[in-house]
Design a binder for these strands. Structure first.
Lengths: 212, 212
DNA sequence: ACGCCTATTGCGCATTCGTCCAATAAGGCT
DNA sequence: AGCCTTATTGGACGAATGCGCAATAGGCGT
């Protein structure tokens, strides 16, 4: 393999790792698989990542961090809390392919056995929690939302979204994604005390990138 | 180890497997671990279960079925829909040790790659869904619950409970179990249109006038 | 009491894993 | 050109895995 800039190499390794993880799952990913996917040797992987645990944690942090960044950007692009909340749900519902969501399930499952993964997962969860909490708080302060306990509401919304993701990934053909998405929206509407349908997708307002 | 009736031995192996799975997770369970837990040899395990996959699948089917049976029994023991709903939440919140819940996460994660697990997981999910749906329907018919879409409500409740389970298992020290449990109860109360506190687990049926 | 069936043992085999390391090659610098 | 840093290789190593198998022992029918 051609010599490469260290930063680019690290990046390439992460991408190759994610490709394998999507196919085999976190628990089924080996160093040799990643090396083969990249077309290099296994030793090179360890030259850049001290342990397999660290590599998997960084790969997960990468894909999860991208998701979070996308949502943060989508929220920042809106002004009213209602539009921001809708942006969060839109981003969540159209977030990548089903294989990408499988990574989350794997991460939660493997967190108990991989310390670094658990640490990353926890950090990201807290950031989601904070994003939603501040969003709800501004909505309450401006009088658009009616929420008695902001933290509790933020947590419940996260639980609903995680539950949606779980059902769609694990039991794909029992529940359609669109249906789950709609039901999640109704739950959130009730949670923040706005009228039904307020959060329905793209109501007179189209998101800039419509393709997936 | 003393010679044992084949049926009893198979049962003992399943129980030992579950004990190990609760501690190490599905992916981290080995034949030797099960044998050690049982106090026998690894060869014995293979004498009764042809492969490790078969053993794990049967063990999961067993524990998941037990959980469901326990909830069904708890529901049957109550008469009013409100008490039944409370029974479901009680059973869910006190279902075994936190380590036992790790099994569900593992199962969901591996479902995508192991057809037997996915099939079993799907069946159980549908049974939970049906249990909740009929429970809610009778509550609506008797006028105690106010629910516009029973199926949607049942699904949302399941999503909340799964989300609760997920957070507690994956991020144990970020959120306390009691707190998550309380928040889930509040969500369910809102979902079925009953006053706050109605589902608080307490032996004495308090009048639904207490606040949070 | 004897013999047969099989539950049970304990080790070995082949494989695969993460990790490590000495050797090699590539490319920038003087 | 020569050198020197380091990206890259490819295999070795030890541990751990699922599984197979020959040997052992416990107990029931006769």
């Amino acid at each position: 393999m051609a010599r490469m800039n260290p930063d680019d190499r690290r990046e390439a390794i992460i991408e190759a790792t994610l490709e394998v993880v999507r196919r085999r799952g976190i628990g089924g990913t080996t160093v040799r698989d990643v090396a083969a996917e990249l077309g290099t040797s296994s030793g090179l992987i360890h030259h850049y990542y001290a342990s397999m645990d660290e590599l998997l944690a960084q790969a997960f942090a990468r894909v999860a961090g991208d998701d979070l960044d996308a949502v943060v950007a989508a929220v920042r692009a809106e002004v009213t809390p209602l539009d921001q909340l809708r942006a969060v749900l839109d981003a969540y519902s159209r977030s990548e392919d089903p294989d990408g969501m499988q990574v989350w399930l794997d991460a939660w499952s493997e967190a108990a056995r991989r310390p670094e993964l658990q640490q990353r997962s926890r950090e990201l969860n807290e950031q989601w929690q904070q994003l939603l909490s501040t969003l709800l708080r501004t909505g309450v302060e401006s009088g658009q939302f009616v929420v008695t306990d902001v933290d509790a509401a933020a947590w419940r919304i996260l639980a609903i979204l995680d539950g949606l993701l779980l059902q769609v990934v694990a039991h794909a053909d029992v529940i359609t994604r669109a249906q789950a998405d709609q039901w999640a929206r109704e739950a959130v509407e009730r949670e923040v005390g706005i009228s039904a349908g307020s959060l329905t997708q793209s109501e007179g307002r189209m998101s800039p990138s419509s393709n997936a």
